[in-house]
């Protein structure tokens, strides 16, 4: 449970605002970090912490693109394909990345559950396209070769972590 495991962080979140409702976005991030995605049960847990109705939490989780109400891969690769990036080859970059990971042209999650690739809206990195965010961290001025190297790095990171846990 979040309340027990992250009591201190939750207290810090609520301390910023005059009411508990305002903590909902930060708590959704915390829950997502803890559980990997936002299940109905998790949304109810957040609702209880913020003292608001679960349907309101659900509408907020659904409104924003950075929350996921479905399980996703361990690494979320968000590729900007908006106009400024597309003028610098982002559409081709996105297709090449998907093909490299064995995904169809729309992206999706790899069979090993490691990577979820999605096209996203502008990420304020238009001068450094093509680019992506991996778990919300920026990687810029990319091409297929560079992203292949990053993917190897992330794969190695995953197997190292699994080794530690196993």
């Amino acid at each position: 449970m979040l309340a027990e495991k992250h009591a201190e962080r939750i207290e810090k979140i609520f301390a910023k605002y005059p009411d508990k409702r305002s903590g909902v976005m930060a708590l959704l991030y915390l829950a997502q970090e803890e559980y990997g995605w936002l299940s109905e049960e998790t949304l109810r847990e957040v609702a209880e912490l913020c003292d608001i109705d679960p349907t309101q939490v659900q509408s907020i989780a659904g409104f924003y693109t950075m929350y996921s109400e479905k399980p996703k891969g361990r690494f979320w690769l968000h590729v900007c394909t908006d106009l400024p990036c597309a003028l610098r080859g982002a559409d081709d970059f996105f297709s090449a990345l998907c093909a490299y990971l064995g995904l169809d042209e729309h992206g999706g999650t790899t069979e090993d559950g490691l990577f979820t690739v999605e096209p996203v809206m502008c990420l304020a990195a238009c001068d450094k396209a093509p680019m992506l965010q991996c778990n919300f961290h920026y990687h810029e001025n990319l091409d297929l070769e560079k992203v292949k190297a990053l993917i190897e790095q992330w794969r190695a990171e995953a197997s190292r972590d699994d080794g530690v846990q196993g």
Partner: peptide
């Protein structure tokens, strides 16, 4: 002074 994080909405 506080920082509040949005979550992806123009």
């Amino acid at each position: 002074v506080y920082v509040h994080l949005g979550a992806g909405a123009y």
